[in-house]
Amino acid sequence: MAEALSAEVRDLSLVYRGRGRDVIALSEVSLGIAQGEFVSLIGPSGCGKSTLLRVLGDLLTPTQGTVSIKGRTPRAERLDRRIGFVFQEAALLEWRSVLDNIALPLELRGASRRDREARARALIELVGLTGFEAAWPRQLSGGMRQRAAIARALSTEPDLLLLDEPFGALDQITRDRLNMELARIHEVTGVSVVLVTHSIREAVLLSDRIVVMTPRPGRIERILDDPLPRPRSLGTRLLPAYEDLVRAGSRELEKGYANV
């Protein structure tokens, strides 16, 4: 990596202290994420991919090792609202309109009503929710709810966008569409992205690099480069190189599943 690093994880271990025996969720994981890079974490349940993501977002504290984002600790970055996080559920506030949900992080930061509304309206356009500013969350479809969650995560212009299986609960067609939206948002904003996914096809379609992880203990099995041409589109899936990468990724993945 010649470019500047957006995030760096070095010799990271995380142990969940349980009753009787400890569970090693992550064991000596090291990974660098370049500025503007799109990295996917993939692997079977228990491989520590979500744990790694939560460490980057300062939702978990590692047992050993160092994590830095833009040269600072995840905590410092989080307290400055430099991290965006999207979860599998949209987790919108049901009592707020779509606009006010997207503006929430700015409101918590103390931005004026005018500033945060202007920013939220721009984001609503970016994620394709124009016309739904005043809607209640429960009036939205699952895909639209995730669009709002992505807009909310981008509202504070984060250095790092962390996505934890954001499209796992969506049907295939909606998922395809949101994959393309995410690819476009990544191109437009230039934000560094870490995506946790179960789908090797999703990972190959979107990423610059694919980190394949294996469980017990959670560690990195292999990192695959994904040099498919950008911008990515659904047509990317028709390229022979796409299928080659999916096959290569699946082979690596199966190693992880072999000892499940």
């Binding site: 977002g57 300062d58 939702l59 989080r78 307290l79 400055d80 609202r81 991290i83 965006g84 996080f85 979860f87 599998q88 559920e89 987790a91 506030l93 929430l104 992080p105 409101e107 918590l108 930061r109 909310r152 504070t156």
Partner: peptide, 20 residues
């Protein structure tokens, strides 16, 4: 998960109480 959203957004305890 909404609590995690507030944590990521560095909400104060008072903000978390009144807004969530």
């Amino acid at each position: 998960t909404v609590a995690d959203v507030f944590h990521i957004a560095a909400a104060s305890p008072l903000q978390t109480f009144f807004k969530m």
